[in-house]
Design a protein around this nucleic acid. Structure first.
Lengths: 110, 110
DNA sequence: CCTTATGATCGTAAATTTACGATTATAATT
DNA sequence: AATTATAATCGTAAATTTACGATCATAAGG
């Protein structure tokens, strides 16, 4: 996105934005849902479930992996992905806290 | 981001991705935090709080507004922004449900 | 009416994203 | 060893994002 001023923001904001970015595409949400459902950790069956090419799915998987939300294990010639519990819960917590920070204002504002 | 195949995914996934995308930049997280803190609905004070130009902040505000998370009221020559309670809570709910869907798998997977 | 302040919009440059086909690397199979 | 299947990576086109200065529109104040 051209010249993101990452260094100008708090670490917390950068991290939460990173997780949000990983979730910022319907294909990646769909991938995560598949991973959530088939807890048995599938791999390239994901490609068959989605209307995207193998390379595109691979790219989305890479982004999820780079954000830390998922991890992949090589099992023979297949690769098995699953959600990384620790990171998943951290993201959940950070977002939860952010959203919970809201308290409705009185009649004075919008 | 070049040719997003929005139509190929479920409505739910598109919506959740939309909210995530709104949160996918540290500057927008920072803006939301300001709005969460000063519940009194500030406007261009945001510009002074952030290390970004007025036009850039205005652009981020526009994106948050387009996602529905915030709304802006014109008050004289100033514009007053605040969080849209209804949308905020919807986003919170959708993300919460997604994250809560996780159940740790046994020893069989990664 | 003219000036000033506020904030949106325009135009632009640079980086990034999304998507795909083609290629490559690796492991399993024959 | 040759073939096959799986998935990563490369290369590329098109769209989008981020950031900024400059400009525009509007409302308040003089």
């Amino acid at each position: 996105m051209g010249v993101s001023k990452t260094e100008a923001f708090t670490q917390a904001d950068v991290i939460i934005a990173k997780y949000a970015k990983a979730l910022a595409h319907p294909a990646r949400i769909a991938i995560l849902r598949i991973l959530l459902e088939r807890r048995s950790c599938i791999c390239g069956d994901i490609v068959e479930e989605l209307p995207l090419s193998q390379s595109t799915v691979s790219q989305h998987l890479k982004e999820l992996k780079e954000a830390g939300l998922i991890k992949g294990d090589v099992e023979g010639k297949k690769v098995c992905y699953c959600i990384d519990e620790k990171v998943w819960k951290e993201a959940q917590q950070l977002l939860q806290v952010l959203f919970a920070d809201y308290t409705p204002c009185g009649t004075s504002c919008c």
